[in-house]
Design a binder for these strands. Structure first.
Lengths: 236, 236
DNA sequence: TATGCTATTATGTACTACATATATACAATA
DNA sequence: TATTGTATATATGTAGTACATAATAGCATA
């Protein structure tokens, strides 16, 4: 008879981990808000009974996402985090596992399909004109490189229009992944077709259409990518 | 005459920053892949001509997103990053700026609206049955707390069905924000109405409908939240 | 008033020493 | 032989000290 031996994961947290939690707790309990000044590293270290080293390691994580800002003599201040700031630099498609790449590629498609409501909520006449200008650029017809550039510019503008900075940063972060995956697809010989619905078509919908219609248009525009997903799925 | 004095931001990167870049470059150039063993801390420090301290600070950032894993005597190995692992712990709505909270709340709505294609691509008969079971739970009728629980369980299952781990983790990460924002809304007295389309309605669409129909259903289901966005927008 | 100097101070970096955990090998035991 | 115990080597984890660096504030100076 074999019993289940999975007793306990028993993950002992490192000092830095625990310090991280304690600092977070401290900030919450004392109702720190963005802009507030934080205690000095030494004070934290002494209060927690650990070396300044460990405190710095914990603080480094906060710094990484912009949650604390440090200036030389002035000390540290709490800030509203910018989650993607730190990650952006480390996102190297070449190093990542294929599954993660695939996940992020899909995530981008998902978000793009969901933007519609926010866009219609915030778009101005000027936005539409600018989008039209981008979409009308004849570079579209020439090389594949230029087409990719326009692709990025057009869709980037859509994110900007939402007025959601976090969202915008998020898509900026995903850009390298997107490009990388596309390039790999091209290398593997699958021809990346253009969708039936062009950027200009999308602009037309923005002029007089509904969020719902825009979603459908966007789906058609992205259809080649969705078809790609479908093919991969069928293989399994 | 006033000239433009904005010469240069002149952001001097810290040692740790530069070490971070160098290590990343090193990994890329040598085609490191997830699972590969990395050089020891001391080796890196000596090779780069910096203290082990600085190397550790840089490595700490990699560790934070699970990009390197360290074991005691064995050293470090490169892994595929899990971006949200490190961030998850630090995401404390109480501390964040309202704008960021609002951004993340919107982001969740956006993703939810965009899930449709992935769901239809992956859903199984069993998934549908489980969703129906969740949606049929009578707790729905009772307290607001139970309703929120079901809400989380139902939507969480939708993410799982996509088979996209990154996406699933992402929504898990956003959960506290979502709950927090909802609670704040309730405190402020705005009655959080239920959408016209219920979870059971959504299940029906999954049974025989199309991705497009599901998107529209989801919009109706989330409509109270979108209306909330609209109200805020109108105030400006 | 504007500039230059100086002292102060909190973070940034370096270095050393030791603690801790674990892979590996080998011995001991049944 | 297979399992368990023991020893050792080793890379990371933590501590502590010292100094470098940058930025603030105050005062002095032109």
């Amino acid at each position: 008879m074999t019993r289940d031996l999975s007793l306990k994961p028993l993950q002992t947290l490192s000092m830095a981990d625990r310090v991280e939690l304690r600092i977070l707790e401290f900030l919450k309990n004392n109702q720190f808000k963005p802009g507030d000044a934080m205690p000095k590293e030494i004070e934290l270290a002494e209060a927690l009974g650990v070396s300044r080293n460990v405190v710095r390691e914990a603080l480094g994580r906060f710094r990484m996402i912009g949650m604390v800002e440090t200036k030389k003599r002035r000390g540290m201040t709490l800030q509203s985090p910018d989650f993607f700031k730190g990650i952006e630099r480390l996102l190297e498609p070449e190093i990542m596992a294929d599954e993660t790449l695939e996940d992020l590629f899909q995530l981008r498609l998902v978000i793009e399909m969901g933007l519609s409501e926010l866009i219609f909520l915030n778009i101005t006449q000027q936005d539409i004109e600018e989008l039209e200008k981008i979409a009308s650029n004849p570079s579209n017809a020439t090389s594949q490189v230029f087409r990719l550039e326009q692709e990025i510019e057009f869709h980037g503008r859509l994110y900007e229009i939402t007025g959601n900075k976090t969202l915008y940063r998020f898509q900026r972060m995903l850009l390298p992944v997107f490009e990388y995956v596309i390039q790999e697809e091209i290398k593997l010989g699958s021809d990346v077709k253009k969708g039936q619905v062009t950027h200009l078509d999308l602009v037309e919908i923005l002029k007089s259409g509904t969020p719902s219609a825009f979603r459908e248009g966007m789906y058609q525009h992205l259809k080649p990518h969705f078809d790609g997903l479908k093919r991969k799925q069928d293989k399994k």
